[in-house]
Design a protein around this nucleic acid. Structure first.
Lengths: 140, 140
DNA sequence: TTGCGTGCAAAGGTTTTGCATGGCA
DNA sequence: TGCCATGCAAAACCTTTGCACGCAA
């Protein structure tokens, strides 16, 4: 969908391309800026934020809020994919602080269950599972 | 269980009492500070943050993040459920802010799944499902 | 030419931290 | 007495905003 009355700039193009390449992971604004700086073609932070906001509105990108004091994560999910928008879940280790991204089909059940049994519409983008990761559990 | 080697101060006592009185709603750090300032017995912002952090660790208080650029919300949820009896999950409505307590057997599966499939030990006390509650969903 | 996009710098607001003081046990 | 908690102020942090310039259409 062509944006209504909005321009397509080289920065936007490159940002989109980069996000698509990262499909499956997420990146923070800092990551993005660092990438383009390293490429020798820096993009202003404000621009990145503004374009990401548009992309989120357009449904091409998901924004994840892990917690305060952790920069937001962004993930490309494809063209305003009405139907199969595939969002992922997050686990945050309370010990080491590591963030784990889960693309797990079984977890979709959770949303279904909450909806049918409890009438609650889960928002996976805001939901974070807290606990202890495998390594920390082994370490004691 | 007395906190291990930690003191109980008047600030902590008063903060706890205030939070208990607010049970069912959520308050921000700014709300808390304003309350005690109005009472003529101000408590430093840093102290409030530090005590809240302890209370969250102890499982007596939940911390909610509605979105970045909105101060975090805190809510008293009761004494440390130490023994573990039945763990209670929480759903937070992003629209009306309502907190829903779920005592649901089926949700125990979530912990089992995360453990067996992803090696992650879920901490139900700190995990909050974000989304839209039934009423708000109907209201559109 | 029109007006949106960019980029820099500064502001905005929340949360954290350093350090000296005060209070609990 | 020893150690933790407090409080102030400053720092750190992410994110937003103002404004002049540049570029797409």
């Amino acid at each position: 969908m062509a944006s209504r009355g909005q321009y397509s700039t080289s920065q936007r193009e490159e940002l989109c391309r980069f996000l698509e390449e990262q499909k499956g992971t997420h990146v923070s604004v800092v990551d993005i800026c660092a990438h383009f700086r390293d490429m020798g073609k820096p993009i202003g932070t404000a621009t990145v934020y503004r374009q990401l906001e548009r992309l989120v509105d357009e449904g091409e990108v998901n924004k994840y809020i892990i917690d305060l004091n952790t920069p937001a994560c962004f993930e490309y999910i494809g063209e305003h994919s009405a139907g199969g928008a595939h969002t992922c879940f997050h686990c945050k280790c309370e010990k080491c602080g590591k963030l784990i991204h889960l693309h797990c089909e079984d977890l979709e059940e959770l949303g279904v269950h909450l909806k049918s049994e409890h009438g609650f519409t889960l928002d996976p983008r805001r939901t974070v599972f807290y606990g202890i990761c495998e390594e920390c559990a082994k370490a004691g």
